[in-house]
Design a binder for these strands. Structure first.
Lengths: 123, 123
DNA sequence: ATACATGCAAATCTTTTGCAATCAA
DNA sequence: TTGATTGCAAAAGATTTGCATGTAT
């Protein structure tokens, strides 16, 4: 684990913001860390392959990075905002329906976030 | 709805294969349809915006296109293969846990497909 | 005639890679 | 010294776009 990778892992684990590679890069620069975007990407890939972080893919947005602790997501269908939600683990229930071993699952719930709701009510 | 868009919609609705834009393009060419890849992409975007098809995003794979009828997916974590699975609609149950209206949800179950299981047992 | 659909090539965006320079053990 | 890490710039892959041309009503 390189020092840079550790910094990046800390940022991800300390934030609920589902940051993109570029946002992580900018945050590091703000903190006066001398690093390139390529190194951010490479470190993210390494962390991902070690299972230390997760990726969240949403149509129309660059990959966002996330903690590994199990949780689900609300996705705003207007602005793409991701919000964590802690639902009960469904692995066992899903396993009853699936003919092969369930390794994990990914649940995204589509909704309209408060901010976008307000915006729409104004118009 | 243009003739090309209709052809593409028919391909998607007639296949369980979760085709990529390029695969759709190749399938059309096989059928002697004169069309460009750009038009395939443009038509897919139009169909998607009209809510007539869905996209399936999986890490490391180009977008794949799918029917709109509600169903969930098994995703092979080795080869990326997508398999439809018909689980009970969970919208009502999720709504009880979520403080904003649930528009829809997307559930991907990670597993290892039969073919990859066999391959691994051989080695 | 008008508006839309098409195809091509170029542009875009995100991410990955080759490689030389640098750093750390 | 040796091997890993870094940064840069270039490449890559997927998708979108500008624009001139073609098509259908």
């Amino acid at each position: 684990m390189t020092k840079n990778a550790e910094l990046i892992l800390n940022i991800i684990n300390a934030s609920y913001d589902h940051l993109t590679a570029e946002q992580i890069y900018l945050r590091l620069k703000e903190d006066q860390v001398k690093i390139s975007l390529a190194t951010v990407y490479n470190s993210l890939t390494a962390l991902y392959e070690q299972g230390l972080i997760k990726k969240v893919l949403v149509e129309g947005f660059p990959d966002r990075y996330d903690r590994v602790r199990r949780h689900d997501h609300l996705v705003c269908s207007r602005c793409g905002r991701l919000t964590d939600i802690n639902l009960k683990d469904m692995t066992a229930a899903l396993q009853k329906e699936v003919p092969v071993p369930v390794l994990s699952y990914d649940l995204k719930i589509s909704c309209i976030c408060d901010e976008c709701s307000k915006k729409e009510r104004r118009n």
